[in-house]
Nucleic acid binder design. Structure first.
Lengths: 337, 337
DNA sequence: TTGAAAGCGTTACCAT
DNA sequence: ATGGTAACGCTTTCAA
């Protein structure tokens, strides 16, 4: 019932190999023969059997992407990675297979060793990530979104979260703020040692310290209660707080909301700078100054690197996207007292 | 370099077919032989070549899921469908291939006809969805999350959005509200005729009309400005508005925020009932009464149906999950004036 | 209980 | 410029 290559060949009055060569373009074909074959393909609705093909070529045109451990669709940053990779893949004729991190290391080995995929992209790399040695031992290329401990061991792309954090501090300090706090990722993100959370926080704290300011920070659950609690805690740490760095995109709207409830005007009483995808900062009221997190760009880049590796061309081991500040209305000089 | 079945056979001192039968369990094998083969498999780290396997079996243990047209990771409901299907699939040893709706109908045909997948799940079904006839013509099973025009033509699972809308109206009306408005999905969701958006709205409006109330509604962009505008418009339509039905999970936090800005207390001055995933309503302040949208359950169910079809067992054509009301603090009787 | 061998659909080498 | 055919790695019939 399914149409095979020989059916196409028979109908076009040519040999199977000719059809194959028309398909692959690996051999010159006369215009007339090509026409007949293509017509035959179209009329029969022939699609080459992917499995049969993969057994001869050494590839499948499928790549796997490993989702974060606690992916639940809430974190839009995670999803932007997935969509960016997905679109890049589709644009190049690749298909994307989704794996969950809960399956652990075994499933990565599985899809690779069973020749289901040509390569793997892994995101949300943790400090001392157990997947890294596995990926290194794979006989297929892998690309990380995030930075592994041994930064030379695997091709990876990342955003310079430390520099982003430092840039937020610098911006607020330059505006005149001397009491700056950071509202960071949820505690469980730190608990699982997610690189981005640690690096952003450390970037902020280091820069605060370097500038002789108090390293004030707190993790926050992205809901109104969690944010209210975190803000209260920050004020407890530093009652003179006049500026907030928020690296917690889901919490950001609740932060603005809470500040309003507390009667603190933004930016008059409290300046706010976020590290988050730009579209999530710019539509808030007030529009929030941010160091844009280039999630889509990172995803696209990761796929590009992976395809490069698959095609056998060397790739830069490390690519670190530089932060960029978008000035909006949420940060200004502190009020004189 | 890659380990093949013959390598396993050779090492175990048996024939290739014996190894195959150990793997498939399709033939009785002596305990001793089985032990040797399994040991050999483990030591060599053998994984059957998925492509070679798929060419003999008629299946791949991979299913495709088609993402919505404008999936950008913002809509957590969409993502919950994907994760629910993904987890259900992984739990049953299936892999999930992601397709984007932008690829259109051609790519569905492609993955199916090239025998890459055993079946397809499609979500966000539109009125007169062009994919429906294509899916029907496929020689592999398909399951829809959402209801097609011709409800008998394809196996589908859905939430009863009309009943959910009606239930919201009923709840608020029972509390004594006579001026009820609906803040609905964004305009572009209506523009692309998404079934869920239309059915929920029509369910609300029909029930309002049946109860002799004004059918007041408005679509809303899920950001502060869009929500502010929508709420203003609703008050324009009905200045006595005392209750709001929100079916727009991304806008919901902004609705509460805006009402607070306007000095309207919830539920004192304004009752709010949402149609949304339960976890997105319960952590807000105040916790929002909702008709829970069982996204995870629908995704799980869709996969279950698909696997049923793949294994050749008949499945119910239509499954409509009934709405259920969670009473929380956001809805109460209207204030006497 | 096990083995030999014929396929599955495509590709690519070797011919012509 | 085209055709014949042996692989690719696995499954399954047929035989023993």
């Amino acid at each position: 019932m399914p149409v095979r290559l020989v059916d196409v060949a028979r109908r076009a009055g040519v040999s199977p190999s000719t059809v194959s060569y028309v398909l692959s373009g690996n051999r010159p074909i006369s215009a007339e023969t090509r026409r007949r074959v293509e017509e035959s393909i179209a009329e029969l609705g022939f699609r080459p059997h992917a499995g049969a093909r993969s057994i001869r070529r050494q590839s499948t045109n499928v790549v796997a992407m490993v989702l974060p451990m606690f992916a639940d669709g809430q974190s839009s940053v995670q999803m932007q990675f997935v969509f960016a990779v997905l679109h890049a893949a589709r644009a190049q004729g690749y298909n994307l297979l989704l794996l969950t991190a809960e399956d652990g290391v075994a499933e990565i080995n599985n899809v690779v060793n069973s020749a289901m995929v040509d390569g793997v992209i892994v995101m949300e790399i943790q400090v001392n990530d157990p997947r890294v040695p596995v990926l290194r031992a794979l006989d297929r290329p892998a690309v990380l979104i995030g930075t592994p401990d041994d930064a030379e061991s695997l091709v990876h792309v990342d955003f310079d979260f430390a520099a982003a954090g430092a840039m937020c501090v610098q911006h607020l300090h330059d505006l005149g703020h001397r009491h700056i706090g950071m509202l960071a990722q949820p505690a469980d993100t730190f608990a699982r040692q997610a690189g981005f959370a640690l690096r952003a926080r450390d970037g902020v704290l280091q820069e605060l310290t370097d500038r002789g300011l108090n390293p004030t920070w707190i993790p926050a659950q992205p809901n109104p209660a969690g944010v209210a609690e975190a803000i209260e805690e920050l004020f407890g740490q530093d009652p003179e707080l006049s500026a907030l760095i928020v690296y917690n995109e889901l919490a950001l709207p609740f932060v603005l909301d809470r500040l309003r409830q507390l009667g603190r005007r933004v930016p008059g009483d409290m300046s706010v700078v976020a590290i988050c995808p730009d579209d999530q900062a710019q539509h808030l009221l007030p529009a929030v100054s941010d160091v844009a997190l280039p999630a889509a760009e990172l995803g696209r880049l990761a796929f590009e690197r992976l395809v490069g590796l698959i095609s056998g061309t060397d790739q830069p081991v490390s690519t670190l996207l530089e932060p960029h500040l978008n000035r909006r209305g949420s940060a200004g000089p502190p009020l004189r007292r």
